[in-house]
Design a binder for these strands. Structure first.
Lengths: 214, 214, 214, 214
DNA sequence: AATGAATGAGGCTTCATTCAT
DNA sequence: GATGAATGAAGCCTCATTCAT
């Protein structure tokens, strides 16, 4: 009550001491695993604590409530996602558009396979109210903006409003197909994603073409 | 005990008498509204009963459990969706591809605006186990298959395997953007969907073109 | 409220019209069957109505509540039991004691096999409060008194207080073994009951002997 | 989910720490009292928790469900019963038969007066499915077997099959009269049990006599 | 009288969160 | 800080009973 900010859906504080830090990460890993396995609602704080080899008491030392745990997992994932996007695009600055596209999609396919909570986070993040939603939207928006900036570089003639919406569509589409492909077996998932890049390339070609043509 | 075989996620009985039928539909509507507002897990059977202006007792007379309620909502929606798809495509049989595409997207935009549970159903249906998942998958598969058939008509030279994956991508993409657009304000939602049809057209053009060209 | 006697755990009225009478008996039979199968608590009024091929509405026309249903079953059984005891003992009035004993035990074994609710009634009747308990006690007491009277005939020198307790023990023992034998398979049940009569005979011999001896 | 294998009707864990142990026993005592007062079905977990001066939460920390609570009460009672029987019979090994009989009956009369749940447990244990039934049957069988062994010592000439059924009858009879006497006032209960020992003695005398005679 | 849909109190159980040790 | 026992609000669901038709 006195420290009402503790009620927020955020970690109480991110510890810096090595020991605490380790425990904090262990809890986050456990939470990611449990959320991934059963989803936000079915996940229990006790299961997470057990998975992290700690007590619920300790868990609540770091996270004021269950949503904060989810927020923690989400934020860590979003940070990685943002960093990955920035890294991949920085690395290929100036590369031909299709190559860039492939690189980004490839990187995210890998990310999705590495991060167990990827599916759980993206399917709940936007449904949940509060912090998580904001974080997710911030992450999404960052990627869209960066995409728009890159796109503007490739198609300088495109009006900014259009750039913005095209970027949004690209990001939404790739994210959605990454998501959808989880429902497919490995082979078909691969095929769906390959076909996605083909679609996006065809689309990008049309958008970039007229400008080149003129 | 009496209804021991009715553990399935299906209505106990679907009433035919006008009065009961009305109540049954009212419960389904209420369930759709509540699921739409708070999602499957946060929805309470009591809230649904209250919304339907009935008692929980009555609710449980029709539906043996909460999942059955969701299944009911989902199946009604899926049935409408399937019917809508079939109607729209039948009506434009033979129409130029872009026109067909616009008609389908338009119809689904409207459906989504009419059906409050659309979002809730599609976001939970595939996550839930049992009946619902099957129904959702059947519905999805039906639309993909029909799309594939139509597509094959427009591009007779395309190998069947390719047709299948392209159809899947088209359906997934349109569905996903319908879904994503819910997070946008009306204007930007419109823009996103318009841009989606543009993307899909560009992609379709590329797929259909080589065949025409040859 | 106005007719507060309707709250009693008794049938509302025992119908005399043939049609109603038939339905009343059907309900009682159904109740007996259901109570026998699952016990008082697990029995549902709906299951009983269904078993009797009537509606719950009709059921409640005859019986004001579930306990009344049980009371009805119990009373019918008790009446039969009392009548049976009286008939068997009347028939063998003056017969040698062991013969009488065998006849009574035999008759009750048969009764128990004919009346599905026998076990259910006796195991719940005394646990339940109210009407049923009274009826059961009345029935039990009737049989004990009659047994005492008979016993007094065979052993005129026995002080009345002793006669009473011996009669009670005899009745309790036979009833209890009838009850216990239900937990045994047919062969062992038979053996247990045979052994019971042997025990009772040995006991009776000792009680009657001193008097004969003098 | 975490305790998914603990669906059995057994305690989740039996605590060893003094404090928890005390609470565990308090819950068991409360359960015994409530089951004794109203029976298994009418007992509510909430009433048990209240009686134990705890919250339901705590109750469910030890017992996964209501049946487990009953099983706990039953097993504790059965253990005491078995131990008591063994102690009493061991103590009088070789004593004359009537003395042994009196000692056992006396011990059980006392046990029944000390254990409030005695009646409730024995009247429900065999009706319930699962763990409880098994435990009850094991306990009963143990006492019957021990009785048979003792009996065989007193009457070495008796064929084993007969020993078995006689032992069963003795145990059933004593148990049943212990049970029946609960429905009597103190004086008459005493009288019934005294008469029971008289009956059993007469019976035993007859069984043991022929052998002595030869 | 008969029907069976409607009612809602109340039971069991889970699980996020607190707090004494 | 760490622990994990304790708490109790809240959800799902059943079923005895009522009442409109």
């Amino acid at each position: 009550m006195l420290f009402s900010m503790e009620l927020a859906d955020r970690p109480r504080r991110i510890p810096t001491q090595a020991r605490s830090r380790r425990r904090y990460e262990a809890i986050l890993d456990a939470a990611a695993a449990v959320f991934a396995e059963v989803g936000f609602d079915a996940a229990t704080t006790e299961a997470i604590a057990a998975r992290a080899d700690t007590s619920i008491g300790s868990l609540y030392q770091f996270f004021p409530n269950k949503r904060a745990l989810f927020t923690g997992v989400a934020e860590r994932l979003m940070a990685r996602e943002t960093a990955l996007f920035d890294a991949v695009t920085a690395e290929r600055a100036g590369a031909p558009w299709p190559e860039l596209l492939d690189a980004v999609v490839g990187a995210f396919v890998e990310l999705r396979e590495t991060e167990p909570a990827w599916h759980a986070v993206w399917s709940s993040a936007l449904a949940l109210e509060g912090e998580v939603k904001d974080t997710a939207e911030r992450c999404h928006q960052h990627i869209v903006s960066r995409t728009a900036a890159i796109l503007a570089g490739y198609a300088p003639g495109l009006p900014p409003a259009r750039v913005e919406i095209v970027a949004a569509l690209l990001v939404e589409t790739v994210a959605a197909m990454l998501f959808a492909s989880l429902r497919y077996d490995a082979t078909r998932a691969r095929a769906l994603l390959d076909e996605t890049t083909r679609m996006v390339r065809a689309y990008a070609a049309e958008i970039l073409a007229p400008i080149d043509a003129k």
